[in-house]
Design a protein around this nucleic acid. Structure first.
Lengths: 115, 115
DNA sequence: TCATTTGTTCAACGATCATTGAACTAAGGA
DNA sequence: TCCTTAGTTCAATGATCGTTGAACAAATGA
């Protein structure tokens, strides 16, 4: 069952642009956002990002994205479901996320290598 | 006269999204972009940013923005004229800069006045 | 029950960050 | 010429970054 304590997330109106930009200014985290944007509305689990970096590293990066207010993370059994905070970001910074995602489409990452 | 050597800038097609995001993920640099976006087409000199940080700090931040391809810096006598690379950024990441600038309008910075 | 799956925590590490103050260069104006 | 203005360079500092591996915890499934 789910007796897991929820993880801390900033409220929508506390999401700050510099924090979001810093969170996205990393190839691994940008790749996570890219995968999330293409996965359909259900989100992904942390384990599904292990093509991008090690388990420990993914934990680190997903935390950064969560703390910046870019993603929502909810425990589901032994897993964590990660979803984009699309509505919150669109409301706060209109057009921003879409422009990022569009420019992320052609970004390659295979374990640390960028273009 | 202007016998100053030009400073190195990345070509438009070498501007990378992670680098741009990293460059903008700092309150001082975001404030520089904000001032540049509101100054008219002529750009500004480094000295005009000293309400945001010390002279040395401004040199550092403007270099970061230049190296990331966000601004153009050209020597003019003893000064450096700093301009936004609007066209290059719009071409490379459509809609991105506009969304940033719009969200920058109400951003407050430490060292002094809003405008 | 016991093993597996999923993910976290921790300490360590080298690297980069943003800032400071002092010293410096280059151009212009008197 | 001397002085001022505008900005850079440098070394130092403390902070944060992103990664690793080992150990750990919690839920699941046999």
């Amino acid at each position: 069952m789910n007796t897991q304590p929820p993880l801390p997330h900033p409220d929508a109106d506390q999401i700050s642009l510099p924090n979001v930009l810093t969170a996205l200014g990393d190839t691994t985290r940008l790749a996570i956002i890219g995968e999330l944007s293409r996965c359909g509305g259900l989100g992904m689990t942390c384990g599904q990002f292990t093509d991008l970096a090690s388990k420990t590293s993914i934990t680190y990066h997903v935390s950064k994205l969560r703390e910046a207010g870019v993603v929502n993370v909810t425990p589901e059994g032994t897993r964590r479901r990660v979803t984009l905070r699309r509505d919150d970001l669109d409301h706060r910074f209109p057009g921003f996320l879409d422009s990022i995602i569009a420019s992320t489409a052609d970004l390659h990452i295979d374990r640390g290598r960028t273009e």
